[in-house]
Design a protein around this nucleic acid. Sequence first.
DNA 1: CAATAAACAGACCAACTGGTTTGTACGTAA
DNA 2: TTACGTACAAACCAGTTGGTCTGTTTATTG
Lengths: 202, 202
Amino acid sequence: MALRNPRKTRERLLKTAFEEIHAHGFQGMRVDEVLRRSGLQKGAFYHHFGSKTELGYAVLEEQIRPLLESVWLKPLAEIDDPVREFPALLDGLDEWMPPAMLEHGCPVNNLAQEMASQDEGFRRRITQVFEHWIDGFEALFERGKAGGHIRTDVDSRAAARFMVAAIEGCIGLFKVEQSRDHWTACRSQITTYLKTLGPRCN
Amino acid sequence: MALRNPRKTRERLLKTAFEEIHAHGFQGMRVDEVLRRSGLQKGAFYHHFGSKTELGYAVLEEQIRPLLESVWLKPLAEIDDPVREFPALLDGLDEWMPPAMLEHGCPVNNLAQEMASQDEGFRRRITQVFEHWIDGFEALFERGKAGGHIRTDVDSRAAARFMVAAIEGCIGLFKVEQSRDHWTACRSQITTYLKTLGPRCN
DNA sequence: CAATAAACAGACCAACTGGTTTGTACGTAA
DNA sequence: TTACGTACAAACCAGTTGGTCTGTTTATTG
């Protein structure tokens, strides 16, 4: 490694901070611990970030957001019939999940529930991330309508928002119960809800 | 107030601690601030509680659990046809909500998402609380089956677990977005899901 | 090559935090 | 009324935490 590489240094701080925030929450994350794990000093940290809070914002924008993109939005963009294809998407996601996710849950939701009412800067940024996620589902449902897989009288936005809520709710329960079976049972109800949006029912 | 009233002193500590935990999370709650707001000293605190963590356990058992009981379980026990009566129950709940709940969300879920992976003692206790909540929904669905309002092939436990997950998910989103409209839209999808359990839909 | 800015190292600090200790006043049973 | 455990008050403490400051080395530009 080159002795000076500001981009990599910054990236290393961000990655380590992401892991620490995911593991202990933003308030529980310690700057010193991030530094220790990164093998860096205070000087490096406060050269790249103005404060702990600004680091938090950067982690959300530059680590969590891209993760959401690759884990959820890209796969969502690749399917057309949610009722039929989404369950399989969930299955695929399931196996890929690293242990940290199983133990600590969804990084977006963790930050959201911890910081939304603590810091307006966080709240605004997290809202944007959620809205972006909802956009993905909404686009999928609109595509589904065009393809005849979703009833045209469905409120795509409301359904999309509920999908995100339901997913976060299920993950949140799993984080507490740590039970594969409960997770599977709870998750399958999302599919049950999805069928509601299809042409058959009602 | 009598100069010595251990029961009330303990209760005051618990109530203030509950508010502080609800507002700032367990890790964000400061013992000194609870003491300041209670008008008490360290001596009082560590006479009634062995540690900050034990206070947290006590808040969960003696404040949050009873709150869940009165806000959710009692109302649930009083209805028989979930598909028809649950939406009205939600409406009633909606108006009653104090500002702190709107701002900080569900105390159970907050503690859950923050502490489940941090402290095994918390995780176990929170699991019990969630399980108790799920029991309430399960009993309701079983009653619904008996009354012909819920299909008998429905997995009551899975549906009950999903109800809790969906509710927490919706509340979690509301906490971030702080939008009445989004909340209403998201919440109405719970009703959509509930209809799935009724006799009509397949 | 000189000058200047960027990219750090590392010592330092004030404020805070959970917890301890010691002392004391109150309530109550004998 | 006396004796003793309970219920606190209040000073104190050691460790931690985010953040600052000064200095030094590396890259870049004129």
